[in-house]
Design a protein around this nucleic acid. Structure first.
Length: 649
RNA sequence: GCCUCUUUAGCUCAGCUGGUUAGAGCGGCGGUUUCGUAAACCGCAGGUCGGGGGUUCAAAUCCCCUGAGAGGCUCCA
């Protein structure tokens, strides 16, 4: 007998060799029907793998992350089996479960191209195979035999993977006629896979290496119930409706022009007003934190970037330098503001008493991004950073870092970004030559970031190898409508530029010392921030920020005079108000202005004119009743004050 | 940059395997209506079908080159 411990710490005894499935069926018939995997001593196992020793277990249904993972991993195998049936000789790369579904990288071989039109047939085949209820059979086989199998099959990708595995036994999983190299775990059989949707096709380099062959990646998702698939597809639809590219167009915030160039956003009047408001919002905070504004030009001599190291690192992948006509002097469009700011620091001698110095600038920078990477406002070739560089003494570094974290948190609070993750990016200890700067400085900088986040009580993922080439960083990431992660705020420690620009201050000991730099951008860039804000709010911006706050809707032309009076009153109170004087019925005007996501609609007709009131509708919330003009103004001011509270602490 | 797909009016889209003057809804403009909480009615004007080249008696439709967009991959100071 062995002792099995359950998550609630209860212990039961079973015969050695019992399986997770047996345990589930002894608990209840329904559980046995729904369970898909079991964690044994912290490792996820197949349900039918015998448990031979005392163990702590947890049974997983589809709803658990481990359950989904197993379900989708098995689905990837099932799809591979379907592909092999439809495309004989097809070769397989890797096929893992992902956050939402799974994919498989395949090479159909001899010039065959799989297109979206083929996906329904593949889906059909998958369902057909699933209904055979084939068991997923685990086999442990010697490496030589496995190699022989895939060599015979001619699957060079699998052979490459196997060769990198340690000698000894290797696990294979088999269902129906399909056998795959796999660590597992898997479902007991294919029967729970009831609903399948292949979502998209994409090229993906073998092993993520752009120098190697590009395989066809097929993304899909499966569910144990058809209804769950419908709900998921419905969710995707709704996410699409929040896409900032769509809403940005609808609300006339920004546009792109083929003629101006790809990745170069054009801000329309309403978008520009929104941006200005964001800028003044941050300026206000920065005044409080003693930042000093600076302004620098859009270009700088190439030598500037040779000094900074950017030319060496990014020069060959950048926009080519521009030249003066006669002398051929070379200038670069600025890709970063920091070198300019360093020169401002250098414009006069500094004392330790001057530090920290905090220079801020909404600096527009230009970077060559590969055409396939451009994406709406989130990845562009020209954008404006809410940039600042803090020059401080080493002993001030951690405190300064913490103050910046406070600013980022204030920003996120003001915009109600509750779901964000933070990542500390350190250098790759295996590839130290990728970075510039001394070992000693890197160690100091990484320590400062880690300590500052700890002291702020933050839970940050530490990711080695993700640092910038000049220093470690702390990034704040937010998810977009489609679940993609975007970096917003960033805080980076920089020992390198002070070194390269030979920045100095005179210490209390009358000696020359080197300051430390912090590079920070709470929004990241205005472009990306607006994009994420649009998706976060669905275009329903906070009242203080939205381009148009109120629209007055006269019932008919007879009330235009009164509507003008309301308009003037509100505009005089600094409330951004419009009037919809079109010759349309009130229902139509309401509909159109609701769709434009204007927060307040004021209906004025005979009754309102006689009583000096307005009939108020809040966007998305319908009729709020009648208000005296004064009271309505107070209502708005209150709402805005509440929204701005986060800023004033 | 690479793979697959898309590109038709200001916007959203229809135009089957090539066949006469390229359609619809919304929007715009003109008129009628003067109206009470998410779409009044009538009429009109908008397109060298992303651009260039080719095949054909005939191209929005087929082929080639190219621009832009989408989803990924690689990259991201």
């Amino acid at each position: 007998m062995i002792k099995i411990t359950f998550p609630d710490n209860s212990v039961r005894e079973y015969d050695a060799g019992i399986t997770g499935y047996d345990i589930a069926s002894q608990i209840s018939h329904n559980l046995a029907k729904e369970v898909v995997a079991v964690t044994v001593n912290g490792e996820v196992w197949d349900l039918q793998r015998p448990i031979t020793n005392d163990a702590a277990i947890k049974l997983h249904k589809f709803e658990d992350p481990e359950g989904k993972h197993t379900f989708w991993h098995s689905s990837a195998h099932l799809m591979a089996g379907a592909l092999e049936a439809l495309y004989p000789g097809i070769k397989f790369g890797i096929g893992p479960a992902i956050e939402n579904g799974f994919y498989y990288d395949v090479d159909p071989g001899n010039g065959t191209v799989i297109t979206e039109a083929d996906l329904p047939d593949i889906e059909k085949k998958i369902i057909e195979l699933a209904r055979l209820n084939s068991p997923y059979v685990r086999e442990e086989i010697g490496k030589e035999d496995v190699l022989a199998y895939f060599t015979k099959k001619g699957d060079e990708y699998k052979i490459e993977l196997i060769n990198e595995l340690e000698d000894g036994t290797i696990t294979l999983y088999k269902h129906g006629n399909f056998t795959d190299l796999c660590r597992g775990p898997h479902l007991p059989d294919t029967s729970p896979i009831k609903a399948v949707k292949l979502l998209s096709l994409a090229g993906a380099y073998w092993r993520g290496d752009e120098k190697r062959k590009q395989l066809t990646r097929i993304y899909g998702i499966t569910f144990p119930k058809k209804q769950m698939l419908d709900e998921y597809l419905n969710m995707l639809e709704q996410a699409k409706a929040r896409d900032h590219r769509k809403i940005g167009k609808e609300l006339e915030l920004f546009t792109f022009s083929q003629k101006v160039g790809q990745g170069l956003p054009l801000w329309l009047p309403k978008g520009a007003m929104l941006r200005e408001r964001l800028e003044s919002f941050l300026r206000k905070i920065q005044v409080k934190y003693d930042y000093l504004p600076v302004i620098t030009p859009h270009i700088g001599q190439k030598e500037l970037y040779m000094t900074s190291g950017h030319w060496e690192k990014y020069g060959k992948d950048s926009f080519k330098p521009i030249q003066t006509p006669a002398e051929g002097e070379e200038f670069l469009l600025k890709p970063m503001n920091c070198p300019h700011h360093c020169e401002i620091y250098k414009s006069k001698p500094r004392s330790y008493k001057d530090l920290p110095i905090r220079y801020s600038e909404f600096g527009t920078v230009y970077r060559y991004e590969q055409s396939g990477e451009l994406h709406g406002l989130t990845r562009v070739r020209g954008f404006t950073q809410d940039d600042a560089h803090i020059f401080c003494r080493p002993d001030q570094l951690k405190d300064e870092f913490k103050k910046v974290i406070d600013i980022v948190f204030a920003v996120f609070r003001a915009f109600d970004f509750q779901e964000f993750t933070t990542q500390i990016s350190l250098r790759d200890p295996e590839n130290k030559e990728k970075y510039i700067g001394s070992d000693e400085n890197w160690i100091k900088a990484e320590k400062a970031i880690i300590e500052a986040t700890e002291e702020k009580g933050m839970k940050a993922f530490v990711v080695p190898g993700e640092a910038a080439f000049y220093g470690p960083k702390l990034d704040f990431m937010v998810k977009d409508a489609l679940g993609r992660n975007w970096q917003l705020g960033t805080i980076q420690v920089e020992y390198n530029l002070p070194e390269r620009f030979e920045l100095e201050y005179i210490g209390s000991d009358d000696q020359r010392h080197r300051p430390v730099m912090i590079h920070r951008a709470p929004f990241g860039s205005l472009e990306r921030f607006v994009a994420v804000l649009i998706e976060h709010t669905g275009g329903k911006f906070p009242l203080w920020l939205t381009p148009e706050q109120v629209v007055v809707l006269p019932i008919s032309e007879k009330y235009h005079v009164y509507a003008e009076k309301v308009l003037n009153f509100l505009n005089n109170c600094d409330i951004r108000t419009l009037i919809d004087s079109r010759n349309e019925k009130i229902g139509k005007k309401i509909r159109d202005n609701e769709l434009k996501r204007i927060p307040y609609l004021l209906i004025v007709g005979e009754k309102e004119e006689n009583q000096g009131t307005v009939s108020v509708r809040r966007q998305g919330k319908g009729d709020k009743g009648s208000f005296r003009l004064e009271d309505f103004k107070d209502l708005l001011k209150d709402e805005m004050n509440r929204q701005m509270e986060g800023l004033d602490n």
